[in-house]
């Protein structure tokens, strides 16, 4: 019974985490690593509980910035990708520039956003958007381009209008690729939001990290990282869930049936 419980697929990552925590604790004890280099797991957990109200408030701010950037990614990235996929002309102008822009380190230009947009949530949203939108564009372009020519011929033979062809044939066909881009994007958007909070902010998990770092409060820093990762995981799971609901027919989801 217990054995069956321990082998539940949903529990497996947690088992691995516990194992890693034990190894972490053992390593500190065996190699006598001082607390100013790496805190002990129990210190991190203590700090997690002690600072819980603050961490919760700050993580909500980070989540807002992340979701704001992610919304922009969807609103701008997907339509942009569609135009790129359908127009060779636009593709030849825009795509190389997009790739070029991706090589610019966002951390380097994040301070500029503070100069331009101030200390509010907006620069964090922009930062989350810039980090997250490229994978969505790339995979959406691929999704729309991989619609079979026969399928378009089929639509045309039925006399389908452009809108019908798009909504009944192309878009559903592209959805799996779009979702794979969105899943990469949401985790990057979290990083983007934190980058934004690093450079100009007095709130958010990024700010907590900065402060903890400045005070050599390693347990708090690790606690903040735990919270941050949890945000990333929860958002990823949410997208995954929406994907399951929207494309239950796709090969990657078929075990659901």
């Amino acid at each position: 019974m217990l054995r069956r419980l321990l082998l539940l697929p949903a529990l497996r990552p947690f088992l691995l985490i516990i194992l890693l925590l034990v190894l972490w604790d053992l390593a500190i004890r065996i190699f006598k690593i001082p607390a100013y280099l790496i805190p002990r797991p129990e210190q991190v957990v203590q700090q997690l509980f002690a600072e819980w109200p603050r961490l919760l408030t700050e993580s909500w701010k980070t989540t807002q910035a992340t979701l704001g950037g992610f919304a922009l990614t969807i609103l701008i990235g997907i339509p942009l990708a569609m135009v790129i996929a359908y127009s060779k002309l636009v593709e030849s102008y825009v795509y190389p520039l997009l790739v070029f822009s991706q090589s610019i380190p966002k951390v380097a230009i994040a301070p500029l956003f503070v100069v331009w947009f101030g200390f509010g949530i907006f620069p964090k949203i922009i930062s989350a958007f810039l980090l997250g939108f490229f994978p969505v564009v790339v995979s959406t372009v691929m999704g729309f381009k991989s619609v079979e020519p026969d399928m378009i011929d089929l639509a045309r033979s039925m006399g389908a209008s452009r809108l019908q062809t798009f909504f009944k044939f192309s878009l559903p066909q592209a959805l799996p690729a779009i979702f794979s881009g969105l899943k990469v994007s949401i985790t990057l958007a979290v990083v983007g939001a934190v980058v934004g909070e690093f450079v100009g902010s007095n709130s958010g998990i990024g700010y907590v990290l900065q402060v903890a770092n400045g005070n050599f409060d390693l347990p708090l820093m690790f606690a903040a990282l735990v919270v941050l990762s949890t945000i990333g995981v929860l958002l990823f799971v949410a997208i995954d869930l929406i994907e399951r609901l929207m494309i239950p027919w796709h090969a990657s989801q078929r075990q659901v049936f």
Binding site: E148, D150, L154, M158, A160, F169, P172, I247
Partner: peptide, 28 residues
């Protein structure tokens, strides 16, 4: 006045067999 059958069946994976056949009626 024409119906076409392609080399691959070009059935839409997100529709049941019946809904795939009815697609013709939907569009027309």
């Amino acid at each position: 006045d024409v119906g076409i059958v392609f080399q691959s069946s070009v059935l839409l994976a997100w529709r049941t067999v019946l809904d795939n056949i009815l697609l013709q009626a939907e569009i027309r």
